[in-house]
Simulated assay, not measured.
Amino acid sequence: MKRTLRFSWIALLMVVLFLTGCATNDEQKSTEKKATTEEFKAYTVTDDSGKEITFDKIPETVVSLQPSNTEILYALGVGDKVIGATDYDNYPEKAKEVERVSDSMTINSEKIIALKPDLIMAYTIGDEAALKPLEDAGIPIFIIKSAVNFDDVYGDINQIAEVMGVKKKGNELVQTIQTQIKDVEDKVASVDSKEKTYFEISPSPEIYTAGAETFQQEILASAGIENIFVDQKGWAKIADEEVIKRNPNTIITTVGYVENAVNEIKSRKGWGDVDAVKKNQVYQLNEDVMSRPGPRIGEAVELTAKTVYPQLFK
C-alpha cells in the first residue's frame, strides 16, 4: 500500500512539474513575443526643409528623385526598396532596372501615386509644385537639400540611414569614405608644388568652370590640386582668353555630351599655346563620379589625384 502511494505521489509530482514547465514555457513565449512586438518604436526624423516626419514603421518601398540619393540607398544596402527613380539613375547597375518616374526636373506624379510608395526621397531643386499631388495623396515626402560639400554628403548619408533604419551602416559608410579620402590626401601631401589645373564643366561657346564653394572644388583640394579659378565663386562662366592667360598645366573636363571633349578643347583657337595642351595633359573624367554628391566622392578624389599625379599611385 505504501509502495502504491509512493508511486502515485511521484506520478502526481511529475504531472505538476510538467504543467508548471508548460506554463513557464508559454509565459516565456508570451514575453518573447511581447518583446518582439515592442522592439520597434515609432521614430521621427527632420528633413532639410525643417519638417519632422514620424515613421510608424521602416519604409519598405521608396521613390528616389535624385541619382545621388539613389546611390546612397544602394550603398546602405537598402537599394532593393527603391521602386521609382529618375532617368539618370544608372549606378549601380541594379538601379537601371527601377521604374522611371522623373527626368530629374519634371516629376510624373500619377505614376508615383500608382506605385504606392511608403516614402518619397525628394530634393530642393526641381519641379517642387509637382510634389503637391503627392502630398495630397498622403505619401510622406522627405526633402534632402542638394549637397555642396563633403560634410553635406555625410549628413545626407546619416539622414537617409536614420530614415531607413540602418544608422550603424550609415556611420560605417561615412567612415569608409573619409578613410578613402584621407589615404589620397596623405599621398598628395608629398607634392612640393600643386598642379595648376583648369576644370571644365561646360564646353565652348558657353564655357563654365567650378570655382570656390562648389562640390568640385572640394574634390580638387582633397586631391592636392590648385584650381586656377578658385578666385571665382560657384559655377562661373568664363572666356577663352582668361583660360589662356592663366595657362593651366593640366585640364580636366567632365563634359560627356559632346563628341570627343578632349579633342574639342585642344582644337579651340588660341588654346594651342596653353601648357596643358602642349604637354597633352587634357583629360576627360566620368561626369557622374565627379558631379554626384553621394557615396562615390572618395572615388572622385582618388580618380582626380591619380589622373594628375599618376606617379604617386604606382
Rank of each mutant, 00 (worst) to 15 (best):
Met1His: 05
Lys2Asn: 11
Arg3Gly: 01
Thr4Val: 10
Ser8Asn: 09
Ala11Cys: 03
Leu12Lys: 06
Val15Ser: 04
Val16Tyr: 05
Thr20Met: 13
Gly21Asp: 11
Gly21Gln: 13
Cys22Arg: 07
Glu27Val: 13
Glu27Asp: 11
Gln28Cys: 02
Lys29Tyr: 06
Lys29Asp: 08
Ala35Asp: 05
Thr36Arg: 09
Thr36Ser: 11
Glu38Trp: 01
Phe40Met: 04
Ala42Ile: 09
Thr46Cys: 05
Thr46Arg: 06
Gly50Gln: 05
Gly50Thr: 07
Lys51Ser: 10
Lys51Gln: 12
Asp56His: 13
Ile58Pro: 00
Val63Asn: 09
Ser64Arg: 02
Ser64Cys: 04
Gln66Met: 09
Ser68Met: 05
Asn69Ser: 09
Asn69Arg: 08
Glu71Phe: 05
Tyr74Glu: 02
Leu76Trp: 07
Leu76Lys: 06
Gly77Ala: 10
Val78Gln: 12
Val78Ala: 07
Lys81Trp: 06
Gly84Lys: 11
Ala85Ile: 02
Tyr88Phe: 15
Tyr88Arg: 05
Asn90Met: 04
Tyr91Arg: 12
Tyr91Cys: 08
Pro92Asp: 11
Arg100Gly: 04
Asp103Trp: 11
Ile112Tyr: 02
Asp118Gln: 10
Met121Phe: 12
Met121Cys: 06
Thr124Met: 05
Ala130Cys: 07
Lys132Gln: 15
Glu135Arg: 15
Glu135Ile: 00
Glu135Thr: 10
Pro140Cys: 07
Phe142Arg: 14
Ala147Phe: 01
Val148Met: 12
Val153Lys: 01
Asn158Ile: 08
Gln159Thr: 11
Gln159Ile: 01
Ile160Met: 11
Val166Phe: 08
Leu173Met: 09
Val174Gln: 10
Gln175Asn: 14
Thr176Glu: 15
Ile177Arg: 02
Gln178Phe: 00
Thr179Ser: 14
Glu185Tyr: 00
Ala189Trp: 02
Asp192Gly: 03
Asp192Leu: 04
Asp192Lys: 14
Lys194Pro: 06
Glu195Ile: 04
Pro203His: 12
Ser204Trp: 11
Ser204His: 13
Glu206Leu: 04
Glu206Asn: 09
Ile207Cys: 03
Ala210Glu: 05
Gly211Thr: 11
Ala212Trp: 02
Thr214Leu: 01
Gln217Thr: 01
Gln217Glu: 15
Glu218Pro: 01
Ala221His: 00
Ala221Asp: 08
Asn227Leu: 01
Val230Gln: 14
Lys233Asp: 13
Ile238Ser: 06
Ala239Glu: 15
Glu241Ile: 01
Lys245Arg: 10
Pro248Ser: 02
Asn249Pro: 05
Thr250Cys: 03
Thr254Lys: 01
Val255Gln: 00
Gly256Asn: 13
Tyr257Arg: 03
Ala261Ser: 11
Val262Asn: 04
Ile265Ser: 03
Ile265Ala: 03
Lys266Leu: 13
Asn280Cys: 04
Tyr283Lys: 10
Gln284Lys: 09
Gln284Ile: 05
Asn286Ala: 07
Val289Leu: 06
Ser291Ala: 12
Pro295Leu: 01
Gly298Thr: 03
Glu299Asn: 01
Ala300Thr: 00
Lys306Ala: 10
Tyr309Asn: 04
Lys314Trp: 01
Lys314Met: 03
